[in-house]
Design a protein around this nucleic acid. Structure first.
Length: 597
RNA sequence: GCCCCAGUAGCUCAGUGGAUAGAGCACCGGCCUCCGGAGCCGGGUGCGCAGGUUCAAGUCCUGCCUGGGGCGCCA
């Protein structure tokens, strides 16, 4: 299959007229918006056409209603005036003022066909590059050393991964940061426990039961006073950079990282060791954070702790709420680390945007960190710090998802179960696939199902984890989209045809062909909307719609047995493009699209 | 007590201030000798409550109700 960037496309297809050049980007909505803007500008410069998808036509412009009020004219009159000023004869079959003053626009088949060709020829499938690429730091996943990743890490990891992929695709420079919990008071107890276990402990750790190790350390800490005292001293040694202690600490970190890597690989996310910028990284900067805050006069002592009181935050008694940067025992809290991280990301990394893909419970903490960073001048105007918050994963009982024994569900085991269940579901139907291919497809399906269930729900909401629903082959699920993709691919395989030259003109006669084209052309807008809202669920919804629209098309418009060659080629182009959009779109969600399943 | 998030169909969820609020699942009824039936077409109920802003409110504002979460030295 031919794939290339837009530049190469115009070189290769330079001999044929390139419609994209004539009308700008493939997305018909932006072309229309540009034209309408001219008409609105005549009546009031800068007036918003308020162009929306419509159920009465392809698009409707609602801007006349708002404008009428300001101009003191009737809405219909304004709409008529706009229509009179606008030339869309080359784009639309029908432009009519309707109801109180809506402008309904129905696109012409030649325009749609032409835009579709431009999209099909474009390696980016009509998705626009960012006009001003930004350097974006994305903080996500954030597991803890010496603890296994559990279902609580799922959303951050999966949503963050998708956001990174979308940002990158649109042309931003993405810096992934995995803010792992690799520092702090628990390490005294963990290191002492490691010492107690002796040499064999490393063996035991590498077997993978990190949680048991943590639990044992915790138990000693809670029940053994000597151990507790040793742990306290060990923390001091760690903080002061004692080499022997650091060596033990590194063992814990290394084993934990091996564990993350295994989970990330299973999950199929972009994170690697290179993306780990743990809390320990900021340790050397913490004293400077406190000093500089003191220098700006923001620091206040309260109950022995060094605090900043950002305005607008109160505790339960209506008193100012502190962000504690240095505790009364002179240790640094996570607020200090978070402030150091903001500073580092702005000053060293040159971020113009920092996304925190972190659960909503930390909302207030992050707002306070942002506020203090602003006050200290570490978060200057022009740099956005955004909390990309998400809700919790709930179990079938609508409460926090826990295993039967009440523990958090281990991510590794959960992913294995997903693959097993996918394999079982696949086994229930016939397949001529080889066992190895089936196993690979089961992995893609199972993991994709888990990720899609997470990504397709609006991220602020809690969502209910339900195996049967997420693995269903019907409805808004990962497997359904993967199936839609595989079925399209099978057209080419069974028909023994290759995808036609994307420049082959399409003919739009059947309403289902038209609907499909309109849907395909909305891909760029869907990606943009997803990015705008930092919400992969928008893209998920688009892909589900696409799969549904394609299914209707496929039902009513024979492809391989089309009535004539021209129609056949045209429908092959539509099918191929649909599959490409599904594959690329799923790819942006971090989900694979198997050729067959 | 204060703050944040959520509340839309029986269930799970969409819904960028615009016309008659949509999908999927489940349920019922049709269709198709079907290029992968994991299909297509049809069938009906709903914006937590009460005010307000607006030409127009599921969407914005205020109050209340319900659920979840957070609220000084854990991260």
């Amino acid at each position: 299959m031919w794939v290339a960037g837009g530049g190469e496309a115009s070189r290769i297809f330079g001999s044929t007229p390139n419609p994209a050049r004539e009308w700008g980007m493939p997305d018909p909505k932006s072309v229309l918006a540009e034209r309408l803007q001219v008409g609105f500008d005549r009546l009031e410069p800068g007036a918003d056409p308020v162009l929306r998808a419509s159920d009465r036509a392809d698009f409707q412009a609602n801007g006349a209603l708002a404008l009428a009020k300001r101009l003191g004219r009737s809405p219909r009159e304004v709409a008529e005036a706009v229509v009179a000023q606008v030339d869309v004869a080359d784009l639309c079959d029908l432009v009519e003022v309707s109801g109180p003053g809506f402008i309904n626009l129905t696109l012409s088949a030649p325009f749609l066909a032409s835009q579709l060709s431009a999209m099909a020829v474009d390696g980016r499938l009509g998705v626009e590059q960012a006009v001003e690429p930004q350097r974006v730091v994305v903080d996500y996943s954030g597991p803890n050393v010496a603890k296994e990743m559990h279902v609580g890490h799922l959303r951050s990891t999966v949503i963050g991964d998708s956001i990174c992929r979308i940002l990158d695709f649109v042309g931003h420079q993405v810096i992934r940061e995995n803010h792992v919990g690799d520092w702090g008071t628990p390490f005294g107890m963990l290191i002492e426990h490691l010492i107690d276990l002796g040499e064999g402990a490393v063996e035991e750790l590498s077997v993978g039961d990190l949680d048991a190790f943590y639990r044992q350390a915790r138990e000693s800490f809670d029940t053994d006073q000597t151990f507790r005292e040793r742990s306290r001293r060990r923390v001091v040694l760690l903080q002061s950079g004692d080499e022997e202690t650091l060596a033990l600490w590194r063992i814990l970190v290394a084993e934990s990282v091996r564990h993350y890597d295994a989970v990330y690989e299973k999950l199929g996310v972009l994170l690697t060791d290179d993306d780990i910028v743990g809390e320990s990284f900021y340790n050397p900067m913490l004293a400077g954070v406190v000093e500089d805050l003191r220098g700006t006069g923001l620091l206040e002592e309260s109950d022995g702790a060094q605090c900043v009181f950002p305005p607008g935050f109160e505790n339960r008694n209506g008193e100012p709420l502190p962000l504690i940067v240095q505790k009364s025992d002179e240790g640094y809290g996570y607020a200090a680390t978070d402030l150091a991280a903001v500073r580092d990301r702005v000053e060293r990394l040159g971020a113009s945007r920092i996304l925190y893909v972190v659960g909503s419970p930390q909302s207030q903490h992050l707002q306070m960190v942002f506020a203090v960073a602003h006050m200290a001048g570490w978060l200057p105007e022009g740099v956005d710090a955004v909390h990309v918050a998400f809700g919790s994963v709930l179990g079938p009982d609508n409460k926090m998802f826990k295993s039967r024994s009440g523990e958090s569900v281990k991510l590794d085991a959960l992913l294995d179960e997903a693959v097993e269940r996918a394999a079982t579901a696949m086994a229930e139907r016939e397949s001529d696939m080889q066992a190895v291919d089936r196993a690979a497809a089961a992995r893609t399906l199972g993991i994709g199902a888990v990720k899609y269930a997470d990504l397709s729900t609006e991220r602020h909401r809690d969502y209910v984890f339900d195996w049967d629903r997420m693995l269903a082959f019907e409805g808004n699920t990962g497997p359904y989209l993967q199936y839609a993709h595989a079925r399209i691919r099978s057209i080419f395989r069974r028909g023994n045809v290759t995808a036609p030259d994307p420049a082959v003109p399409v003919t739009l006669v059947d309403p289902d062909e038209r609907s499909l084209v309109l849907q395909l052309l909305g891909f760029g807008e869907a990606v943009a909307a997803s990015l705008q809202a930092t919400s992969p669920s928008k893209l998920s919804a688009y892909l589900f719609d696409l799969a549904s629209v394609f299914t209707s098309f496929y039902e009513n418009c024979p492809v391989l047995r089309a009535p004539d060659d021209e129609t056949r080629r045209s429908r092959l182009v539509l099918s191929d493009l649909s599959a490409r959009v599904l594959a690329v779109g799923l790819g942006l969600l971090g989900i694979g699209a198997p050729e067959r399943m």
